[in-house]
């Protein structure tokens, strides 16, 4: 009986030399080889050493995810690659800015939910406000879903940043 290979989600962190072209190479690798990118973040993490960190949320079979890691690892500007989801316990967080345009009962309800979800108001007018919220992708998704019926106008999300728990480093 043919078994469909099990797909799993993975958070891959890559420590790279902060050089022109590295992000294009990483993205080109994913598009060129048909891998999924669910989210991608990149920022310098050690300016003195000229290191940046890229976090990629992807999905695939174990074999594909191993491939992604090896393909990343052989790029010249890559120092280290870690599959945080396989390596052990880790924390993964995302930040979202959520713009609401609403009045009256909707406004009250949105603010009440925001408090329950620990979203903070970082901008407000009489007709609008902007929530800032940090959390797991699932928590953000749930909150944004709730906001849809209450005047959700716009969302801006960072994508996932992740790190291993405990003393382990990349």
């Amino acid at each position: 009986m043919p078994t469909t290979p099990h797909q799993r989600s993975a958070i891959i962190s890559v420590l790279v030399e902060n050089e022109a072209g590295i992000l294009a190479r990483v993205i080109g690798l994913f598009t060129g080889r048909g891998y999924n990118i669910d989210s991608l973040t990149v920022a310098p993490v050690d300016p003195a050493a000229n290191h940046s960190r890229i976090n990629i949320v992807t999905s695939g079979t174990d074999m594909v995810i191993e491939q992604i890691k090896s393909q990343l690892d052989r790029l010249v500007q890559v120092y280290r690659v870690a599959d945080l989801s396989m390596q052990g316990p880790h924390v993964a967080r995302e930040l979202a800015l959520i713009k609401m345009v609403c009045k009256g009962a909707d406004r009250v309800e949105a603010l009440r939910l925001a408090e329950a979800f620990r979203a903070s108001v970082i901008d407000a007018t009489l007709e609008s406000f902007v929530f800032e919220m940090t959390g797991s992708t699932g928590k953000l998704d749930a909150f944004i879903d709730l906001m849809r019926g209450l005047g959700l106008a716009e969302v801006s999300r960072t994508g996932v940043a992740a790190i291993a728990r405990g003393t382990t480093t990349i």
Partner: peptide, 11 residues
């Protein structure tokens, strides 16, 4: 010598 060649097509 290229780990990405291993387990790419054939486990």
């Amino acid at each position: 010598i290229d780990s990405s060649s291993i387990n790419k097509n054939v486990p």
